[in-house]
């Protein structure tokens, strides 16, 4: 990762392992994930559904449903303090104040029976000593900051009276209202239409600079990653398989899976319409994973060693990327 000189990371995740007890057995949803995050930086987490990206982020807020979920080992240091195993009360103080999360579905993520103003003030008053009036003023200001026109008037609106984009802006306002050091955005634009997506992303980038936050962006949309993230982490079956600066990852992917993901983005400006390349096969069942590299069953370069041993993350020769592969693309 590109570590700024002389700065301490706001968030350090080390060897995080999370398991879920299911009816058919224990599933390891997150398997040894580590990363660091610095203020002002954006980390993109990319991967297919079920690869463990959302669970990783829920763990950062202590929101992994327990039971059935359980953080087996590893640590999460937020501003220098390990938050794994903190009590409920301490965790509640951290959520929304030191680390905030915005969710995928702005349509359902807000409480439908309270006005947005009420919900904003609620969060502000929980984490600060603001009086009712101060909280109200601050809420109006936050709505203005996220680009909502006539914010004072919008305060009295219920979520169903706002458009999808507006609701997501309200979510962002709520997330930023206590000036957190880390913002986790779980596919914040997936449910929005394309023009709104662009506006919301632009707003988030602006706000990140303004508030000097560290942002974790979970997304399927590699285009958004390319536009906003400094670093990208690609996850597959609960493991990080490639971690690299965004610029390098898109031009020179190291892991065959990353290459496959990039190749499967439709490109409209191609001269002739071709069949879209796909990664063949299916994501393996987390209960019956392959012996060796988890991608080996679908990888066209896999040999016997790939099927027998699990590769660990290492720096690929000639790049800034860390890759978990025996035969990374640039090296062959």
């Amino acid at each position: 990762m590109t570590a700024p000189v002389g700065k301490k990371p706001v968030l350090t995740v080390k060897e995080l392992v999370i398991e879920f007890q299911t009816e058919r057995g224990v599933v390891r949803a997150v398997d040894g994930v580590s990363f660091e995050l610095y203020a002002g930086q954006t980390l993109g987490i990319v991967g297919e559904s079920g690869c463990g990206k959302t669970v990783t982020c829920l763990a950062l807020l202590g929101l992994v449903p327990t039971p059935p979920g359980r953080i087996v080992s590893g640590s999460i240091e937020l501003n220098g303090r390990n938050i794994v195993g903190l009590g409920d009360r301490e965790m509640r103080n951290i959520r929304g104040r030191d680390i905030s999360m915005i969710f995928q579905e702005p349509m359902t993520a807000l409480n439908p029976v309270f006005t947005v103003g009420n919900q904003l003030c609620e969060v502000i008053r929980r984490h600060t000593d603001a009086t009712r009036r101060q909280a109200h003023a601050q809420a109006v200001e936050m709505l203005a900051v996220v680009g909502i026109p006539a914010p004072a008037k919008r305060m009295g609106d219920y979520p169903h009276q706002l458009s999808g984009g507006m609701r997501q802006r309200v979510m962002i306002a709520m997330a930023l209202s206590c000036n957190p050091s880390v913002l986790v955005a779980d596919e914040p634009t997936t449910a929005l239409d394309v023009t709104t997506q662009a506006q919301v992303i632009e707003q988030m980038v602006l706000l990140q600079e303004q508030f000097d936050m560290a942002v974790i962006l979970i997304t399927h949309d590699l285009g958004v990653v390319a536009e906003t993230c400094e670093d990208v982490m690609v996850m597959y079956c609960g493991q990080v398989i490639e971690q690299a600066p965004a610029s390098g990852l898109f031009t020179r992917p190291s892991h065959p899976y990353t290459a496959g993901l990039l190749a499967s983005i439709p490109r409209i400006r191609r001269e002739r319409l071709q069949e879209l390349p796909v990664i063949r096969g299916m994501v393996p069942d987390l209960l019956s994973l392959p012996m060796g590299c988890r991608f080996s069953t679908r990888c066209e370069y896999a040999d016997q060693r790939c099927q027998a041993q699990i590769p660990s993350l290492r720096t690929a020769t000639g790049t800034d990327a860390a890759v978990a592969c025996f035969k990374p693309l640039g090296e062959a």
Partner: peptide, 22 residues
């Protein structure tokens, strides 16, 4: 199980308030 309850949790809502408001 609804999304807005998860949101409330993610913003540190204490149990009594979560049960009442959300």
């Amino acid at each position: 199980g609804r999304d807005h309850v998860r949101t409330a949790r993610a913003f540190g809502t204490p149990p009594a308030q979560l049960l009442y408001r959300s």
